[in-house]
Amino acid sequence: MLKDIFAKKKKYATIPSEHDKNDVPEGILTKCPKCKKIIYTKEIYKNKKVCLQCGYHHPMNAAERIECLADEGSFKEFNHHLTSENPLDFPDYLEKVEKDKKKTGLNEAVVTGTCEIDGHEAVLAIMDSTFRMGSMGSVVGEKIAEAVRTAEERGLPFIIFTASGGARMQEGVLSLMQMAKTSTALKRFSDKGDLIISMMTHPTTGGVSASFASLGDYNFAEPGALIGFAGRRIIEQTIREKLPEDFQTAEFLMEHGQLDQVISRLEMKEKLSVLLSLHKKGGESW
């Protein structure tokens, strides 16, 4: 009968395998981990890697940050040649560093240099969490301290984008001391009346959050960024309490007095530009 042609197909319950769930075609489409919406990767990139649906900030590497922040062609890098040693003879450490160098094209977990932002010259340091989770060892410490010293010499503002799991375990106490090394450099710089802007991005934790990330004249963060000293699991195990969902997010820190503003990536360049213009040196009096 004719009716049979249109008969409904029997419905089978389909259970997507774990593999299928994550099987969004690489490169063309990107699934937002927050709202689960699948959007053309190109669209997200055009929107500074911010989800068009829910505003989720996809992670950015150093090169992407520079591209969406610095005026075109204005970035001049420092110290691309510094490279880690293995001070504690930690097994496999240098191999891991070497692997990340190949993977990222970076020499270490931070990129430093000068740039212009809407014509305002500044020293920029951008941490990259794709290199050893942005962890801070001797090279990261030296590159940041050197960038601060350069800003001091040239009387330029210092802007740092942090993204780090904290100290680099494989460099032991040398890594711990980078907290003091960067902080002493910043103190001297600040006492000369120069400007420090810290922009905390996902994640900023441990020794990095407990040193330069928190030492800005202005401390900002990207929406949703995880920021904190001790890890969530450690705290839960220590105090034997379940922590609130939003614990250690940028919004949580804002509410607790630790941040000046939470700034969306879409407004970031504009806001930094206004802030830099309000800190221009010189100018006549009233």
């Binding site: 202005y218 804002m254 607790h256 007095g257 941040l259 000046d260 503003q261 802030l275 213009s277 309000l278």
Partner: peptide, 14 residues
């Protein structure tokens, strides 16, 4: 012009 509000006491709250 260009008012940028800054928040928090860096100690306890805003």
């Amino acid at each position: 012009e260009d008012f940028m509000e800054m928040h928090g006491d860096r100690l306890y709250g805003d």
